[in-house]
Nucleic acid binder design. Structure first.
Length: 791
DNA sequence: CTGGACCCTAGACCGGGTCT
DNA sequence: AGACCCGGTCTAGGGTCCAG
């Protein structure tokens, strides 16, 4: 038995009752057995791979455990079956391993419990954080309300202040008015008293006058006499000074027609002594009458003044009443404002108290959150401690075998690091199984016809469907000399199969790059949750079939020689080949953009594109809307309606007022030809840089032109324009002989073909070349006859 | 018919899982 | 460790709808 690096241990088992070491290269047969596989390739802890054999078939089970074997196992040291001592040692190692496994299991359970507790704590923390958030939001709202209330209170206080000031001003005005009213009343009282005094004096005078009149009547003579001065003959006024009291007084008399009449005594006098009839001896003189008149006028003026004072007093009283009422209203308003201010202040106070309570609650929630976070942190630390303990156990058991190389892939849950992410992933699965749920699982590819079969790759799916379900599909491969050649082939395949292969993943190595393509209709339609309902679905529906299509390509590009190896399957599954789900090709897009920039009419572009495609494709259904989209995307303005008022034939430059007229002309004069001016003006360089399909189109046009000329001119129906050119062919009138024209066209066609041969020579696309040379053959047959046609 | 707004898809890049 | 391939994210550009 030849042993290599791999050593197998056969533990005691019921079926065999013996333990053996077997070579991996050895044929496993016979009884059920279990083997242990130690891999020393990478200096890692010995790995045990468990195999079981039942009924003659070998079944590979999952990788179970690392051994705790402290001694390296070398293949050269084991030459035969283990001795009893070796078996015993192995048994001890196994028991130690089992013990460590049990400890590890217990630690795992504890870790799991702690993780569950940590999860609960995290959830509670999260809930508390949410509550805290709500409390904070409510606090914020209340603070905003409080702010509003404060602002309203402030406004009301300012208004109240204004009202108070106005009230104060009105009170002052009212006070002034009252004082003025009081003064006026006092003045009025004085005037009234004076008036009253004058009236009393007047009454006395009247009585005296009456007494005098009575005396005159009795004596028949009327005289006014001064007690001190004799008055006679004429009206006079005397001032009698009563020396008894030292005060002057005025005596007024009137005398008319020999009788003495006492006039109304209205003037104010200072007379304090009554006049004695004995003192009046005769009628008043003219001077006395004049004096009496003046006194009367003064008396009238005083009465008018008294009246005005009374009216002013009344007006002031009314104003005072109004001011009082306004003051009362303002006081009432001020009272209301004060009450509102008080209410708002109370509300503000309540809001502040609520805010304070909420802040306190928020603080409590935060503290509880903090406490829970701290608890969570403690649990995590305990968890980490246990993990580290596990690591320490592994270390002490000499399980780990550290390498000198750098290990940039560190485990998030322990202190270990790895050289590759795959190793880290394996570590996470084996050491932190409870954490693996945090990482997304790769979905396998289910078989569409089986319920329990899941494949791991596109190729397996295709092979499974072909073998198990008799589907007509296969996996093929092909090699290309360049990436450009591969892209041309891919483009042709897409065109012929009405499909599209899109790239999603690229893997780059030092010397190779792999690019994975899959059918563009494969997969699920994904609409972002925040965009659901914002747009109607497409009329033709999504291009995604919500299923896995079997068509795929894997292109492996050799970065040294640039060759491309392609593994592919062109058999689609689960969808039809609707052109509506395809997009306009990039070449056509560029071509349309260029023609738009050159000012070509969109209708002509559409016609040219449609006519240029010999096979049905998405490009064949180019619409004006597509032209609009391209013009928008490339930021090229569309020609306006005014610019399209004249329709020019791009073959013969004839102009027509309507598009229908142009179409009628083209259908009669240029049947089967494209109207694109680009066709006849293109150079070989342009063609090389733009579109390798176009030489075919141009050759077709030239051939068609030659045919038309042959037909038209052969029957003598060619038309000449006024410039001497043959309409539609650009030939001079003087050379318009049918035979000469054909020769010219033949020459031009041959020149074109020679030009395009250079272009085609750069192409490696077999189908393209086949198509081109077929046209060349046709054209050459026309130009030079069948015998001169070249293949 | 036109232009704006907006959604959907392709493509690139990166990280991860599974199997050998 | 290598091979294979899936999923998430981001950006540019194509496609669609709609109002004027």
């Amino acid at each position: 038995m030849a042993f290599n690096q791999q050593v197998f241990l056969r533990p005691t088992e019921k079926s065999t009752n013996e333990t053996v070491l077997v070579d991996t290269s050895a044929q496993i047969s016979g009884k059920s057995q279990q083997t242990g596989h130690t891999d020393h390739n990478y200096g890692k802890p010995p790995l045990i791979k468990m195999y079981k054999k039942y009924s003659g078939s070998v079944v590979f089970s999952h990788l179970k455990a690392y051994t705790q074997c402290p001694l390296p196992l070398h293949s050269t040291e084991i030459k035969k079956e283990p001795t009893a001592v070796e078996c015993k040692f192995i048994q001890q190692v196994s028991e130690q391993n089992n013990g460590l496994t049990v400890s590890s299991h217990q630690l795992s359970e504890q870790t799991h419990d702690l993780a569950a507790s940590s999860q609960q704590v995290s959830e509670q923390t999260h809930d508390l954080a949410a509550s805290s958030q709500q409390v904070s939001e409510q606090t914020h709202d209340l603070a905003a309300s409080s702010q509003q209330v404060s602002e309203q209170t402030h406004d009301l206080a300012a208004f109240s202040q204004q009202v108070s000031e106005q009230t104060h001003d009105l009170a002052a005005s009212s006070q002034q008015v009252s004082e003025q009213t009081h003064d006026l009343a006092a003045s009025s009282q004085q005037v009234s008293e004076q008036t009253h005094g004058l009236a009393a004096s007047s009454q006395q005078v009247s009585e005296q006058t009456h007494g005098l009149a009575a005396s005159k009547k009795s004596t028949n003579e009327t005289v006014l006499v001064d007690t001190s001065t004799q008055i006679s003959g004429e009206s006079q006024q005397t001032v009698h000074t009563d020396h008894n009291y030292g005060k002057p007084y005025i005596k007024i008399y009137k005398k008319y027609s020999g009788s003495v009449v006492f006039s109304h005594f209205k003037a104010y006098t200072q007379c304090l002594l009554p006049l004695h009839s004995t003192e009046i001896k005769k009628e008043p003189t003219a001077v006395e009458y004049k004096f009496i008149q003046q006194v009367s006028e003064q008396n009238n003026g005083l009465a008018a003044s008294s009246q005005q004072v009374s009216e002013q007093s009344h007006g002031l009283a009314t104003s005072s009443q109004q001011v009082s009422e306004q003051t009362h209203d303002l006081a009432a308003s001020s009272q209301q404002v004060s009450e509102q201010t008080h209410g708002l202040a109370t509300s503000s106070q309540q809001v502040s108290e609520q805010t304070h309570d909420l802040a306190a609650s928020s603080q409590q929630v935060s503290e509880q959150s903090y406490g829970l976070a701290a608890s969570s942190q403690q649990v995590s630390e305990q968890n980490n401690g246990l993990t580290r303990l596990q690591t320490a156990i592994h270390k002490t058991a000499n399980v780990r075998c550290l390498r000198e190389a750098q290990k940039p892939y560190a485990c998030l849950f322990c202190e270990r690091a790895f050289r590759s992410r795959q190793a880290l992933s394996a570590h996470r699965v084996t050491k932190h199984p409870e954490k693996t749920m945090l990482f997304p699982k790769r979905a396998p590819i289910p078989c569409p016809d089986c319920t329990d079969i899941q494949l791991t790759s596109q190729r397996d799916l295709v092979l499974h469907l072909a073998k198990e379900h008799n589907k007509e599909m296969c996996v093929m491969s092909r090699k290309f000399n360049s990436e450009n050649e591969f892209k041309m082939w891919k483009s042709r395949v897409e065109r012929e199969t009405f499909s599209k292969f899109i790239s999603r993943n690229v893997a780059r190595e030092d010397f190779e790059m792999r690019k994975y393509y899959y059918c563009h209709r494969s997969g699920k339609r994904i609409v972002l949750t925040d965009r659901v309902g914002l747009r109607k679905p497409k009329k033709q529906g999504s291009c995604k079939t919500n299923a896995k299509c079997t068509a795929y390509m894997i292109a492996r590009t050799d970065l040294k020689d640039k060759t491309v190896d392609v593994e592919y399957c062109l058999n689609h599954l689960g969808h039809d080949f609707d052109l509506a789900h395809l997009q306009i090709s990039a070449d056509v897009r560029k071509s349309v953009a260029r023609q738009l920039s050159e000012g070509v009419d969109p209708d002509d572009i559409i016609e040219a594109i449609r006519n240029s495609s010999s096979k049905v494709s998405r490009d064949s259904f180019l619409t004006l809307k597509d032209i609009h989209n391209i013009s928008k995307r490339f930021n090229i303005p569309m020609p306006t309606t005014e610019e399209k008022s004249v329709y020019t034939c791009r073959i013969c430059n004839s102009q027509f007022k309507s598009r229908n007229g142009l179409k009628l002309h083209q259908s009669k004069k240029h049947k089967g030809m494209s109207s694109s001016s680009r066709v006849t003006n293109k150079t070989a360089t342009d063609v090389i840089n733009v579109d390798l399909d176009e030489p075919i189109m141009v050759a077709q046009v030239e051939a068609s032109t030659a045919e038309d000329v042959s037909e038209d001119c052969g029957t003598g129906q060619c038309e000449f324009d006024h410039m001497g050119n043959v309409d539609g062919h650009g030939l001079q009138k003087d050379t318009a002989d049918p035979s000469d024209m054909i020769d010219q066209l033949k020459k031009r066609t041959l020149d074109k073909l020679n030009t395009f041969r250079d272009v085609v020579a750069k192409s490696n696309d077999i189908s393209f070349l086949e198509n081109f040379y077929k046209i060349v053959t046709d054209v050459d047959s026309f130009a030079f006859g069948p015998k001169q046609a070249e293949g």
